Amino acid sequence: MRCITIWQPWATLIALGEKKFETRSWATKHRDSIAIHAGKKVDKAICQKEPFRSVLAKHGYTVNNLPTGSVVAVCRLADCLQVIEGCGGEVKLESPSQSIAIGDKENAFGLFDAGRFAWELTDVRLLPKPIPAKGMQGLWNWEGNK
């Protein structure tokens, strides 16, 4: 299965279904299942800011108990949309198949600068227990429990 490493708290926000788009500087043609790997880096300062702090707290997480170095969820990468407008106004995302305007909370959870890409993540399933794994840059192949 393809996998992507994401820093905390963003990996957990995806795993909890609170973050629907992962923003990247590059597009992908991959459309299928993808595993979400929580990297070892935790942005402790952002975890204390809103809406991060309250959304994490709602699910029982703090900066001190976020899983790291493990796969935390699997989902479907449904689409890759380009950010058409962002920073300061309404954020608009477009792909050949759809056009989406995102809300304030989603905007707070990503870097939606014009020209970046928003990977639409659907059918998110939080794993019952994080599975330790070494992360990598870019999309990489995760072998599961091997």
Score class of each variant (00 low, 15 high):
Lys146Thr: 15
Asp123Gly: 06
Ala78Tyr: 07
Leu127Gln: 00
Leu81Gly: 07
Phe109Ser: 04
Arg116Glu: 01
Glu143Asn: 13
Arg31Asp: 11
His30Lys: 08
Leu77Asp: 10
Glu22Tyr: 06
Pro130His: 09
Asp123Met: 02
Ile102Lys: 08
Ile131Arg: 14
Ala133Thr: 09
Asp113Asn: 10
Ile46Phe: 08
His37Trp: 09
Glu22Phe: 04
Glu50Ala: 04
Ile131Cys: 07
Ile46His: 05
Glu143Ile: 02
Leu139Cys: 08
Arg125Gln: 13
Leu127Phe: 03
Val124Pro: 08
Val55Pro: 00
Ala35Leu: 12
Lys146Cys: 11
Ala11Tyr: 11
Ala15Arg: 06
Lys44Tyr: 12
Arg24Thr: 02
Leu111Met: 06
Leu56Ser: 04
Lys105Tyr: 11
Ile84Glu: 14
Lys134Pro: 05
Thr28Glu: 07
Glu143Phe: 08
Gly89Cys: 10
Lys49Arg: 15
Glu120Lys: 12
Lys58Val: 00
Ala73Lys: 07
Trp119Thr: 09
Ala101Asp: 02
Val55Gly: 01
Leu126Ala: 03
Gly110Lys: 01
Cys75Lys: 05
Glu94Val: 14
Ala78Lys: 14
Arg116Ser: 05
His37Pro: 06
Val42Leu: 03
Asn145Gln: 13
Leu13Trp: 00
Leu126Gly: 00
Ile6Tyr: 03
Glu85Gly: 01
Ser25Val: 13
